[in-house]
């Protein structure tokens, strides 16, 4: 039988177009980068049975199984069903694999499940976000990181959420040992000072990393009950204008960030270039086109940010513009 494959469908079904003729790679979606060992074993099985026996671990915490014959895509789709069930990824039809690939896997650092500095459960929020936005063919990248260390490198994404805590100070428990001051200065931004034997926090300077809380020996510093987020937007890699995401909001709350992402999808639907190649235009380039104010209008619609939240009035992105110049400095 002649080989007649719709490559557009193949890609949307989360298979990769391979340079090796007749072959593809299956892209397994793992929101938050956490998967059960049982599913990992299943991934290995698929790689052995249909692939070339290797597993490619991607930069966005998914895995790809290369060397799969195009003819085996259906068989692979039914074999990965248990993985899809296990990782809780939304699906349209059972045994048909993933219904989309445009909206990329949601990335997360280990966060508070593992990391002493994690300010919230990054895995849980990544999964919750994936549930909300997937499946979608729109090209959007979202990542969660537990604290300002940004181990998940969320500044490379369209939306990056950086965990924050608002340190709470009980002067009656403070013994002036100055460890919070020392470690805020060494490991963070140096927002603390000692005044009359008690610690004063420069609230404008404090980035909410929680280092002071981790080092205080007496529990004079504790974490706020609320979990907060720094929202950074429109970072990207790519040929034209790679750049880091810039700060949009600090001290945002969980409910608001989810609403903002939902709004962002509506904004993209409205403004995406109808003639874009393969219907794919990155949200960052749309913002470049419509302007920041229009983006804000859409994204902040009906969002009731908590009182503490501060929104940037302007956002300026840097990075190189290779479409303008390829010269070295």
């Amino acid at each position: 039988m002649a080989r007649d494959i719709n490559t557009k469908k193949l890609k949307k079904n989360a298979f990769r177009y391979s340079k090796v003729r007749g072959e593809t790679a299956s892209r397994i979606r793992i929101p938050g980068g956490v998967i059960n060992a049982k599913s990992m074993a299943r991934i290995a099985e698929v790689a052995e049975k249909y692939g070339n026996g290797t597993i490619f671990v991607t930069n966005r915490q998914g895995v790809e199984l290369p060397g799969i014959a195009l003819e085996d895509m259906d068989a692979v789709n039914s074999m990965i069903q248990s993985i899809i069930d296990d990782s809780g990824v939304n699906q349209e039809e059972r045994d048909k694999g993933y219904p989309a690939s445009g909206t990329r896997n949601v990335v997360a650092c280990p966060g508070s499940r593992l990391c002493p500095f994690g300010c919230y459960d990054t895995t849980e929020l990544a999964r919750k976000m994936d549930k909300m936005i997937f499946p979608s063919h729109l090209h959007v990248k979202i990542a969660f990181t537990g604290c300002s260390n940004d181990c998940a490198k969320v500044r490379m994404d369209d939306f990056g959420f950086i965990g924050m805590t608002e340190p709470q100070y009980d002067p009656n428990r403070c013994v002036s040992c100055e460890q919070c001051i020392k470690y805020c200065s060494i490991r963070s931004v140096g927002a603390l000072s000692l005044v009359n034997g008690k610690v004063v926090r420069d609230t404008a300077k404090c980035i909410g990393c929680g280092v002071c809380v981790a080092y205080c020996p007496t529990r004079a510093w504790t974490r706020s009950k609320e979990h907060y987020f720094r929202v950074v937007i429109m970072g990207r890699t790519g040929k034209k204008n790679p750049r880091l995401a810039e700060d949009f909001i600090k001290w945002a709350d969980e409910e608001s960030i989810f609403k903002m992402v939902r709004n962002a999808y509506a904004y993209v639907e409205e403004y995406i270039d109808p003639n874009a190649l393969e219907g794919k235009e990155h949200i960052g380039y749309i913002v470049d086109r419509t302007g920041f104010d229009e983006f804000c209008k859409w994204v902040l619609k009906d969002v009731n940010l908590n009182e503490k939240a501060e929104v940037a009035s302007r956002v300026y992105w840097g990075g190189r513009h290779y479409d303008r110049s390829n010269d070295l400095m």
């Binding site: 508070s112 300010c119 459960d121 974490r223």
Partner: peptide
């Protein structure tokens, strides 16, 4: 048991 007042996120401390 002070809920969430431990050294790390979502960790309690008894004091």
């Amino acid at each position: 048991n002070k809920v969430g007042e431990g050294r790390f996120t979502d960790v309690d401390v008894v004091r």
